[in-house]
Design a protein around this nucleic acid. Structure first.
Lengths: 191, 191, 191, 191
DNA sequence: TATGAATGAGCGTTCATTCAT
DNA sequence: CATGAATGAACGCTCATTCAT
């Protein structure tokens, strides 16, 4: 099967370039960057940007969706690692750590989404994947007696969304403060 | 000319009215309210607003400074209560609770919390008052063995800044997750 | 290569589809419809549309030309009817009536009417057909003493152009006001 | 009373300049002229234009209101002339003539108003003034037996709005065609 | 030849800031 | 010192037209 969907390749590449540029620009200059600036950064004209994302809100949603997919991937990888022998608590904490770092590079996007009345922000299947993996991770760690009972996926989400993403240098300290709320005293002794 | 600077009085009153109006408007509609709207709400013309605060950033800083003063007042009141017999840990936690609630009701307060400890934001004396009171509170609680050693004022500030102010209904749960990072296991047993 | 230019047939069919779609869209939504919308309605891509009509103005002209042809057909049919015994005045008035109604249902027809007699608009042969038929109709009616002398084809065009097409409900009244300017007093008595 | 409302003078002058410029530009280039172009033609910045007219539709309405006021003035002046001995029919016809000429300089504006969903387009009192004066004029002419019975103000309006304003050179001929629909045969004989 | 993605000037509108009164 | 009119850059978005495939 040689030539399938010509042109499409270019368009797809542009779409990706726009998404990347948008993510970068928003991280660097906040969610109020102009569409023109994003377009310029992506190396396309505004019209092209609007062909791919009819509204600024749509573009923001798409950027967020990418981040959510990455978070889901990370959670699933963490879960896979526990099957290879890793301690579930460590994976929970590691996951939180990596996500906190990631939000430092895209928190502005979330703020933008909240401020723009974005509808469903992000792909539901990715959200579900993330929830499933994190849930399994928590359950395993709780079975080990390392994570407090009653801690659920929403708690992890709550912490993720409150990471000090505007001040990445504070993230390690923040993690130190946050982790005891999730883990049991025993988990720390055992370590 | 006998009268003692009647102008000054007017100007001061205008300044206060503008600050109040700005605080209200920002709380209600976010920090993107127009300067005209703030001026109208304050019952003055834009020009007057600009006489008192040369740029919007200046006005915002001033609003934040007011909130910082209130936070300092709260911290000092907490400290005073410990002198009346209240347990220092409880005051630390109560202080966190009240500030978190306040940030949920005011974009400006959130910004104020974020500005604490950042040079250039807010009035230095108020910042110093807040830092002194919170520091004394922590030291007392640590003397009781109720707050972990190594927890400092900046840690409290860091947590304040990351309260889920956009989702006030999550604040109680957030406090549950956060408090174990500050207090010792003993503090909870003792309670 | 036996087949006789199959391309030509396709192209012609596309041309017709575009014209129909353009006419429909313009009638429904005014002449400000986007080229993309017309293309979509015609079931072709914009590029194809532009291959047939290099500019929007060209497309509009073509649509108008179609309407002019229809007007010419109507005028010729009216003339034919007089040969079958119909009174020429009645046919003149009937023609005016039908064209006025048509302009009310189509922005394009209105433009077509306005373009009649203006050099450069529409197909010259259709214009000539319309002019010939309306002229013959007028001459016959004048021979009957039913249409004022000195009334010419341009007068009929002028009236057609000024029909209240935006307010179709006013067209009957407008015709009542307009007809006496064309017909003689005698024509009315005789009726 | 020396200094009453300073500044106001400037603002009023700007308002007038904007109105004039808008009328000119719309007449010259159609109702789709950009707001920037109107502002430039008026010698102000866009912001000033928007201070006076919050919306393009508002500006258009205002331009139309001016025209309506002028029409009302004309109608009242015509009526006054009949009290000085002028023949009512002549005034009716003269009025139509002048209004037709005027619409040639502002018809575009009316089209714009229709196309923009302008709410009440124009001042109601001016509309009422015009209707009263034209009504009185018609009644007087009908008493003279010079204007057909059953002709009402709405008929005059209908004709006014259908004047060939895009082709001012055709207005005289159009009037010749239109007038017999209003006047009686007697009026023409008597003249 | 048909496609549809890309272009970019232009639009109506907003808003922090300046300045004549 | 207060007023509020004026400024003009910037914004999100549209659309006739071009061009690579």
């Amino acid at each position: 099967m040689p030539a399938a969907r010509p042109q499409r390749a270019d368009a797809l590449r542009n779409r990706r370039r726009i998404l990347d540029a948008a993510s970068e620009q928003i991280t660097a200059n906040g969610p109020d960057v102009g569409m023109d600036e994003i377009a310029t950064a992506a190396g396309v004209a505004v019209g092209t940007l609007y062909r791919h994302f009819p509204t600024k809100a749509d573009l923001l949603s798409a950027v967020i969706a990418v981040d959510i997919a990455q978070i889901a991937d990370d959670a699933e990888a963490s879960l896979a690692r526990t099957e290879g022998g890793a301690r579930p608590v460590d994976e929970v904490v590691g996951f939180l750590h990596r996500v906190a770092d990631a939000t430092a590079h895209s928190h502005a996007v979330k703020a933008a989404a909240a401020g723009l009345g974005v509808p469903g922000h992000g792909d539901q299947t990715d959200e579900a994947r993330a929830a499933a993996a994190v849930g399994a991770l928590l359950a395993a760690a709780q079975r080990d007696g390392d994570v407090r009972p009653h801690i659920g996926v929403e708690d992890i989400y709550l912490l993720m969304t409150t990471a000090p993403s505007e001040h990445p240098e504070q993230i390690p300290r923040w993690l130190d403060l946050i982790v005891p709320g999730i883990t049991t005293d025993g988990a720390r002794d055992r370590k």
